[in-house]
Nucleic acid binder design. Structure first.
Lengths: 154, 154
DNA sequence: CCTACAGTCTACAGTAACTGTAGACACAAG
DNA sequence: CTTGTGTCTACAGTTACTGTAGACTGTAGG
């Protein structure tokens, strides 16, 4: 249970091998020891740190913020309020996005149920997309809610 | 009300000037006419097309999908089911993300309310980030839900 | 011992959907 | 006529990875 290769670390944490190397590259993970042939060797510490990173990323914290959290971890005497504030900010973001997504869900649901299988020329889905008057918030609201998200290659 | 410059089009649709040029570059918008000095000139058609694009993007459709929808618009005799299916797929995605975000909200809320303002060394927020056992879905679930989203530079 | 074959290495290019920058030209108001 | 804002092109930068090429390493079977 001492040292493990990058592949083991990957399966232990659910983070892809390439992503681990990427994290090292951007100094989110420290450079690990190497075997005599040059392969990376990790210990239990690395597992914990990577799990921390992954969990924070899963919660939507940016890499920048994760870096911040890690640097805070190192100085355990500072005031906890900093961390609390970061978490609250994140919660605020999540709630904002929830609200937007709920609006999107409503509109998509309406679009789909309005479709009664005619020809495209009369398709109500396309009609409601064209119609920017009946839009949720007319000019500038729910932009980029889902856009450019890796899990949304619709 | 005939021809407008790119800036007018931008304010008419809420899409940034640079983004409009970008859409032209990736052939989402056709090349517009130019004034004798070379400035882009748009008509009401362009406003409608761009509004359509923006609305679809706001709803989370990828650029690729938007392109698909536009090409479908051109042939109004085809079966509406294609469009319906795209919208349903999108609705599915939105619902999946809603579920994930709700889980994230719950966890962040728990983290924040558990924080009682001590020192970082004992901070429960950092503790729950480190603790990958109490994670939502232990090994591979809510990854990249918010990650790399432009509106989330936490 | 030899041969597959999976795992690892580096370095770099590609992805999505823009955003920002630099330097030059255009147009309207005062 | 100047000032300021708008527009032009072309290209680099952003975020957080992912994928690829080409070479080496480590291991299990025969």
């Amino acid at each position: 249970m001492g040292m493990m290769t990058i592949g083991k670390l990957a399966s232990a944490t659910g983070v892809k091998v390439t992503t681990i190397r990427y994290y090292e590259c951007i100094d989110l993970l420290p450079e690990p020891d190497r075997s005599k042939s040059g392969q990376r060797l990790y210990d239990q510490n690395a597992v914990e740190r990577l799990a921390f990173i992954r969990h924070a990323r899963d919660l939507g914290f940016s890499v920048k913020t994760v870096r911040e959290l890690i640097s805070l971890q190192v100085e355990p005497d500072r005031d906890c309020a900093v961390v609390d504030q970061i978490a609250r900010r994140q919660l605020g973001e999540v709630r904002r996005r929830l609200t937007q997504l709920e609006a999107l869900e409503a509109e998509l649901k309406r679009m789909v149920s309005a479709c009664e299988g005619g020809r495209i020329g009369t398709c109500s889905v396309l009609a409601s997309l064209s119609d920017h008057e009946t839009c949720l918030a007319d000019d500038h609201a729910g932009a980029e809610v889902l856009a450019s998200s890796p899990s949304l290659k619709a």
